[in-house]
Design a protein around this nucleic acid. Structure first.
Lengths: 117, 117
DNA sequence: TCAACATATCCATGAGCATCAATATTTACG
DNA sequence: CGTAAATATTGATGCTCATGGATATGTTGA
């Protein structure tokens, strides 16, 4: 089902090109909703800008004044919509962003810049 | 005016550049949350792709199986975060997107997919 | 095997939100 | 004026969700 979502997001013509279908808007809205939380947005930016392109959960819990289960919950949300991946190494779990997913959203929101007008 | 646009685009360094501040992440999350609803996402795409770059509320209510107050509510949400503007002409209210806003988000999500490393 | 640490899951709770019916506001037109 | 149409606001309701405490799972080292 993750594959299905990836396939749906695969195309991503700009928003201004044509109205979004019902299913596609539902799938995309799930991703935007995941980004629609201050903590999750900061998590994404922290992971994305972290050296090596990855950060362990310990890095994140140290960056917020939130309980560890809360951070874990947000990471799961971001992972479920395909914005993050995780890999366990030793005792630690490292998260990294999925650049394609960000690029898809970026392309979708690419505004129709009226160059000549 | 080109300068204005460049300035707007310049304000948003990509997510991967540096961690978002607390206030900035809160402000941005509000915008993403507004996009994090299937109906609102479709509204944005309908307005953005509509001829003339604008659509009246009647166009939108006709596109959904939702009550008129619900559409009105979603429009208010999108307007409050600066994604839409509205203008009343005669009996109708026309909504159009704010391209700078979309460009801002697009730039923010621009991922360094193949930049070195 | 045991203890300490890192992370995830479960469960409960309070806040926020999408929806709609009823109503208000605005505009157009006799 | 008065009526109809377009849109916004209000109030209520059921559902979703962010948060944290308790607990479970997994890993390391002794």
């Amino acid at each position: 089902m993750l594959m299905d979502m990836l396939k749906v997001l695969d195309c991503c013509t700009p928003l201004a090109r044509e109205p979004l279908g019902e299913e596609k808007s539902t799938t995309l809205a799930r991703v935007f909703k995941a980004l629609g939380d201050p903590v999750r947005l900061r998590i994404v930016s922290i992971v994305a800008s972290h050296q090596g392109g990855e950060a362990c959960v310990c890095d994140l819990t140290a960056s917020f004044d939130l309980a560890q289960p809360t951070i874990s919950h947000h990471l799961k949300v971001l992972k479920d919509v395909g914005l993050l991946t995780s890999e366990r190494r030793a005792s630690w779990v490292y998260y990294r962003i999925v650049p394609e997913r960000l690029a898809e959203l970026s392309a979708l929101l690419a505004a129709p810049v009226e160059v000549g007008k």
